[in-house]
């Protein structure tokens, strides 16, 4: 398969105005991913599926990820002239990153037997604007998995044919996989609690 940079260049050439970013990955494998904007997501997805050199016809894994508000510390080396001598010192900058929800697609090609290409979509925030375009029209494999992301994370997929709760019951109001979800407190009888359960059981056994 082509490298991610080549794919990015080709996508940008095919859709002028599309904003495509490469998200780095600090891990051992270093599998980087493509971040696509909402307006062009469907076009890009179709391009990836139809392009004869890519033919990513198989969306294997679709999932949501929750990123809370965070403070990101970045270390940079800067050159500064201190007392007439130029030295390199480390400077730490802090940046507030507002939280967002993310949908990750792992794409493979069954025809050409390569992959994966990781595609990401991000919502504007975690509250009232948790929307992304649905890619179910392009890959049917995403149908249930996007429903699951809606159910557990509250990500609304515009254009999904049947967006309902899938795992929890319909009356359920919370989005349990979010990091700030508070589970119902039913730890009133714990004969042998330890660790986390002990902390939860203690609320019921005040001395």
């Amino acid at each position: 398969m082509e490298t991610l940079d080549q794919i990015k260049a080709r996508v940008e050439a095919a859709f002028p105005g599309a904003s495509v970013e490469i998200v780095p990955n600090a891990g051992v494998g270093g599998q980087r991913s493509l971040l696509v904007d909402h307006a062009h997501a469907l076009d890009v997805a179709r391009f990836l599926r139809e392009d004869p050199a890519l033919r990513l016809d198989y969306a294997s894994n679709v999932t949501g990820v929750d990123w809370l508000d965070a403070v990101i510390k970045e270390k940079r080396k800067v050159k500064q002239v201190i007392a007439g001598v130029e030295r390199e010192i480390e400077e730490t900058t802090e940046r507030r990153r507002p939280g967002y929800l993310e949908v990750v697609y792992h794409l493979y090609s069954m025809e050409l037997k390569h992959g994966p290409l990781v595609l990401r979509l991000r919502t504007a925030n975690r509250a009232d604007n948790a929307r992304v375009p649905s890619l179910t029209p392009v890959w049917r494999a995403a149908e249930f998995q996007e429903r699951e992301a809606y159910d557990l994370y509250g990500i609304i997929f515009d254009g999904h044919p049947d967006l309902r709760r899938i795992l929890m019951w319909d009356e359920f109001r919370d989005f349990p996989m979010r990091k700030d979800y508070v589970e119902p407190d039913d730890y009133e009888y714990e004969p042998t609690p330890h660790d986390d359960v002990l902390a939860k059981a203690k609320r019921h056994y005040q001395p």
Binding site: D170, R173, D174, P184
Partner: peptide, 10 residues
């Protein structure tokens, strides 16, 4: 089925 849990929980 309730909004957060079963009603009643036991």
């Amino acid at each position: 089925f309730g909004a957060h849990d079963l009603v009643p929980p036991a």
